[in-house]
């Protein structure tokens, strides 16, 4: 089975059947925003949601990840995590799946990261296709993440009374086979899915004033562009943009000693290139002083360096950095200003 169909009425039933596979995390409403949270009942979830405050990254690249247990005297080291838990991410948008694919490349690159890879091994991704823009901040069409391109176990597409299921892995297959209420997709369903897809594509258009080829060129010659000075003047250095980004993976490593002053943990915590001491060394030399240089670094890490290194844009177009910015810095506007080659306001 590659494609299947499930009736909307049966989603709760199916969701219940997933519970014994591991903890399930899904999107949930929180005040005026959405968050990924552990989900007990299908009805708790809001499957019509704009990107959550934090991406599901917090489950496969936790904000605080234990790396090592240690004893100071006598010197000894041990595994921080004995066993990683199975879990399911339910209802992940394609932009966030693209984010996971970016992280995969980074942490698979040698020297590979065992913590990430272990968590990834235990993760099942059930994606949810967006049939329209979430809001005005997204730029997924420009980077092509509005359509699904692998990286999930199951993809759900809302077809009204039914959901189309695309099964993309053995793991995914196990979640749907043997369920009487899930049937194989027939020609008529397939036609319906294709039509929905065509209708969807009409709604998505490149959000930037130029195609990615032009953006590549703009970044190639834009390192000394006045756009960055302008961003630096507006940025307040709160680091929100990097905190919410699904492809930001910088971290700091911290030791914590327990009350007996001998046992302890070494863990990593999310750390942001937008922090003013991020590249500062103990001699006092700051190798990326200035918010302009730091903002430029963020943009180049999304649109240039990652392309040079991994042949991938590390912007997934989710729009989180724009939504969260206290200084109202917009990613789309910044890219467009860079494209125009003109000085920003």
């Amino acid at each position: 089975m590659k494609y299947a169909i499930i009736n909307r009425m049966d989603m709760g039933r199916w969701f219940d059947s997933l519970k014994d596979r591991g903890k399930i995390y899904g999107p949930k409403k929180k005040e005026s925003a959405y968050v990924f949270r552990p989900i007990q009942e299908f009805e708790e979830m809001s499957l019509k949601y704009i990107p959550t405050i934090l991406p599901p990254k917090k489950y496969y690249f936790p904000q605080k990840e234990f790396l090592l247990k240690f004893k100071i005297n006598p010197f000894s080291t041990g595994k921080a995590i004995r066993e990683f838990e199975e879990f399911i991410l339910f209802g992940v948008h394609t932009c966030d799946i693209a984010g996971i694919q970016c992280m995969d490349v980074v942490f698979n690159e040698k020297p590979a990261d065992p913590n990430y890879l272990n968590r990834k091994e235990k993760m099942t991704i059930i994606g949810l296709e967006c049939m329209d823009y979430c809001d005005k901040y997204a730029s997924c069409a420009a980077v092509g993440t509005h359509v699904y391109k692998g990286g999930y176990d199951i993809m759900l597409t809302d077809l009204g009374d039914e959901y189309a299921i695309h099964i993309n892995s053995e793991k995914g297959d196990k979640l749907v086979t043997g369920k009487k209420y899930i049937r194989e997709m027939n020609a008529k369903d397939k036609e319906k899915l294709n039509k929905a897809f065509e209708e969807k594509l009409k709604k998505f258009n490149n959000e930037f004033d130029g195609d990615m080829e032009r953006i590549d060129k703009a970044f190639e010659k834009g390192f000394f562009s006045p756009v960055w000075k302008d961003l630096g003047a507006r940025c307040v250095g709160c680091t929100n943009c990097t905190a919410v980004c699904p492809t930001c993976y910088c971290f700091d490593v911290v030791d914590e000693v327990s009350l007996n002053l001998n046992d302890g943990d070494r863990y990593r915590v999310w750390n942001y290139c937008q922090m003013d001491d991020f590249a500062k060394v103990s001699t006092g030399e700051d190798f990326r002083a200035g918010r302009d240089a730091r903002q430029r670094h963020r943009y180049y890490r999304k649109f240039k360096y990652s392309v040079q290194k991994y042949n991938k844009y590390f912007c997934t177009g989710c729009g989180r950095c724009t939504r969260t910015c206290m200084a109202k810095i917009s990613l789309v506007e910044t890219i467009n200003q860079l494209l125009s080659g003109k000085e920003a306001k």
Binding site: P111, D113, Y249, C250, F251
Partner: peptide, 12 residues
């Protein structure tokens, strides 16, 4: 530079 992880990951 501020090498932290030594593994080409942490970004510092």
């Amino acid at each position: 530079r501020k090498m932290k992880c030594g593994l080409g990951k942490c970004g510092h």
